[in-house]
């Protein structure tokens, strides 16, 4: 987790303090070398490596299911869902997000800090991105040393489900 940016909460990407109302908190995590952020309010749990039961015949982006304190949560293989090559790493961390009444577990390589960013600094998706990336990205934050892609998980889920059906 040390490789992740240590942005101080309440300070925007440019290092200027911003009023608290404009700030949105994001949990940062890494998938295949890229840095992603997801609204912290949607996070239910962050847990260490878990035993994940395979679901035969399920779409490839579904890694399986796991037992989260008595609830069965579907695990999403983020590498597959984001169209990245299979990761070497076997012990992945689990970020459990809530969408509606459902819980989904995102298998990620690394989890970083929760950082507060001003929504004013959110930049639109680059036009050069492939269609599939523009579908799930809600925009980009320019951090000091790298870019943070804001993940719209609902959009990712529906675009993946659609492409599986086709």
């Amino acid at each position: 987790m040390s490789s992740l940016p240590a942005t101080v909460s309440g300070v925007n990407a440019a290092g200027v303090p911003v009023p608290a109302e404009d700030l949105a908190k994001f949990l940062t995590f890494r998938v295949g070398g890229e840095l992603f952020g997801i609204p912290a309010l949607a996070i239910q749990d962050i847990i260490g490596p878990q035993r994940i039961a395979r679901i035969p015949l399920a779409p490839p982006f579904v890694a399986g299911a796991l037992n989260l304190r008595g609830r069965i949560v579907t695990a999403i293989d983020m590498h597959n869902a984001l169209g990245m090559p299979k990761s070497e790493k076997t012990r992945k961390l689990n970020v459990v997000v809530r969408t509606g009444a459902e819980l989904y577990d995102l298998l990620v390589d690394d989890v970083g800090d929760v950082i507060a960013l001003s929504m004013n600094d959110l930049e639109p998706n680059p036009v050069s991105w492939p269609e599939s990336w523009r579908a799930f990205s809600a925009g980009i934050f320019k951090l000091d040393d790298q870019l943070l892609v804001v993940l719209n998980f609902d959009a990712l889920l529906s675009s993946q489900t659609k492409s599986t059906l086709q």
Binding site: L57, P59, A65, T74, Y104
Partner: peptide
């Protein structure tokens, strides 16, 4: 089962 795998009739 989760909505995204509801389509599999085997379960």
């Amino acid at each position: 089962v989760a909505p995204i795998i509801k389509g599999i009739t085997h379960y």
